[in-house]
Design a protein around this nucleic acid. Structure first.
Lengths: 232, 232
DNA sequence: TTTTATTGTGTAAAACTTACACATCGTAAC
DNA sequence: GTTACGATGTGTAAGTTTTACACAATAAAA
């Protein structure tokens, strides 16, 4: 594999790659993982981790493999963002890419740093450097789809730690939607939905009645709520 | 082009195709355009019109070209459904496809019949024959995305004629969402939104005060409404 | 010690959604 | 010709959801 001119076809074929837009939340801001490219084209530019599709894997499998190889991360949430095929998106030649968005929990983002020689960093979604290829276009689309997912799925809980507070959750929403939410209405809405279960805290843990209450995502309640929605 | 072994690459590449899921509305039901395949694999099976990506076009351009070539149709609405890459989806070898959904107005569906030798037919979305490749999977995803589009965009008016009645529109909604809507609430909702403009009808045209009123989509009002939504 | 920021909680109005009834007219059945 | 049915237009009341907004308690900062 990889020798010159091994693969011959009757008709033209594009090269096909996958790219990963990995989101995480540091307690304050929504971040995206970028790697500094070690090779041309766009050497030393920041880009999404990704690579070429192999013969024995689906696009989604390729995305997971590349993510693991380049960052050491695994994820439960992986969703297609779209296919990108502008003629000049890759100076090496005609390449189309299928982008995937994934999310990792805050306490699982550590692996990235100690991985390999490549420079990898988390960037605030609103303070991104210039990106390689058409990755800025991909980034916009990925954020757009993340918002849709926030509205229609419980993806928010895949971005939070298993145990979290409502103020944390609200900060995440604020960064994802780039707008403020009324704190009281935000809390009321989620508490009324019943999908949050308070975590029992010992008396020492709860320093005061006004320190944030810790919650856990109640999957069963969410499934129940979802059922009710579909029936209607 | 097309000679044996003309295209040689250092690395493996998949074949890349595009497929079109074309929706239209006949006044009663939501239909999808299928063509009967003339060649193997899946000879004589029904499938979505589509074909291979060419070197000088984006995926979207390829979708429009194939649609025109195979059915004579053009469309304003073309949206990506997704990329499909199961290993065994094409018995000829590894092929990935990017599916697009498009819609055409009722009075523009005639072109299909008189086009070329290939058999092409509109099928009710809920009475589809067995499809070639993984096109059933694509079909499900396309309908799902059409529903999302109905909720978030004015795509419904691209499926209706320029002039339409509310009962017509409601039948379309019923077929798209596979559920009944309360006629009174349905009408109230759209009339209150202000995006429908009644079409002036001469006295002869309006046979009675209880024949359906004809409307036209008010793009300006819709744009205005959309602005208001975004601001909030 | 005082100030500021953060958190928890509750209430009233507005907007939207849902459920439901009746009158008119054309068409088909009788 | 008459009657029954189905399709259309319109309106009202209840329920639900969303929005707007105020105050008390505590920890951290000044």
């Amino acid at each position: 594999m990889g020798e010159k001119g091994v693969y011959t076809y009757d008709y033209w074929r594009p090269a096909v790659t996958v790219d990963n837009v990995v989101f995480s939340f540091d307690g304050t801001h929504l971040n995206v993982l970028l790697i500094k490219r070690g090779n041309e084209p766009f050497k030393d530019c920041w880009a999404f981790p990704g690579g070429f599709l192999d013969e024995d894997e689906t696009l989604e499998e390729a995305a997971r493999r590349e993510l693991k190889e380049e960052t050491g991360l695994t994820t439960k949430y992986l969703n297609e963002v779209g296919a990108f095929s502008d003629l000049d998106r890759d100076p090496r030649g005609r390449t189309i890419t299928v982008a995937f968005a994934s999310v990792v929990q805050p306490n699982k983002t550590a692996a990235v740093a100690g991985d390999d020689a490549k420079d990898a960093r988390w960037f605030n979604i609103h303070e991104m450097p210039k990106l390689a290829f058409d990755h800025e276009k991909i980034c916009r689309m990925a954020l757009w789809k993340l918002r849709i997912a926030f509205i229609n799925t419980p993806v928010v809980f895949a971005l939070l730690n298993d145990i979290f507070t409502l103020p944390e959750m609200q900060r995440l929403y604020t960064d994802v939607f780039s707008r403020e939410f009324d704190r009281r209405n935000f809390q009321k809405k989620f508490l009324a939905s019943g999908i949050l279960t308070p975590v029992a805290q010992s008396d020492e843990e709860k320093k005061s009645p006004h320190s944030p209450i810790q919650y856990r995502f109640n999957e069963a309640s969410y499934a129940h709520l979802r059922e009710k929605m579909l029936r209607c």
